[in-house]
Simulated scan of single mutants.
Amino acid sequence: MSYLNLDEYNRKWIFTHPSMPIEEKYHSLIKPMTQSRSAQFWKENISSQSPDAERFSNQDWPSKTNSWFNEVSWMKEWESDDIEMPADVIEHIDWQDDVTVYFCYEKYNVIETKWSVFKANWKNFLFYDDGPILLGRRRKEALWFASDGTVKLGEKQ
């Protein structure tokens, strides 16, 4: 099995927090990968040696400056009552709603979902905002969120 049930996920609270619970219809569409599957995905798509964003080497594509061409704030939108993601992010990620996305917190913690589910619940995903990277299946565009309330817009190298 490559996925955990959301109830088994150690950070389930980010999707069930009383201040911002997600709708029940999304629960089965948010698929945390098992640790071994997460590690494999991380190694193949993010870094073969670094376990998290704080320890990227200069060999890892996210640490290369040519991977990123803009940085915008997400905090104002996150704190607002509006559910929309920042316009610059939506403009950068012009994907169909059914595109499979991977929200990569760190080597052993990757969540698979659909772009529509991420857009609808992005604030929940960012309850834990310590450097996660969003990638789309067979897509070059990437987002790298930082806990200072910014997100880098770029492309996977």
Rank of each mutant, 00 (worst) to 15 (best):
S116E: 11
D129H: 09
Q35C: 05
P132V: 07
E44T: 13
P86T: 09
E112W: 00
K12P: 00
N109M: 13
R139T: 02
K12A: 07
Y26S: 04
S28G: 06
A120P: 12
D129C: 12
W68E: 11
N10A: 15
I83K: 12
T113S: 15
G154R: 08
T34R: 04
D7P: 01
Q49K: 14
N109W: 09
E79S: 12
Q59G: 08
F118N: 06
E141H: 02
V117Y: 03
K31L: 02
V110Y: 09
Q96M: 09
R138L: 02
Y9H: 13
T113G: 14
I22D: 09
N5Q: 14
P86I: 11
D7R: 05
W42I: 02
T16A: 03
Y105T: 06
L126S: 05
K12I: 06
E155A: 00
F69G: 08
Y9A: 03
N58P: 02
P32N: 07
K152C: 12
I30K: 03
E155N: 14
N124S: 15
E141P: 01
V110C: 09
I111Q: 09
V72S: 06
L6D: 10
S116W: 02
G149E: 06
R139K: 15
R37N: 10
W115V: 07
G149K: 04
E71T: 13
D97I: 02
N109S: 15
L126K: 10
N124D: 08
E91S: 10
D94K: 13
T65P: 10
Y26L: 01
S73D: 07
S50A: 15
E24S: 11
S48I: 13
M20C: 04
Q40W: 06
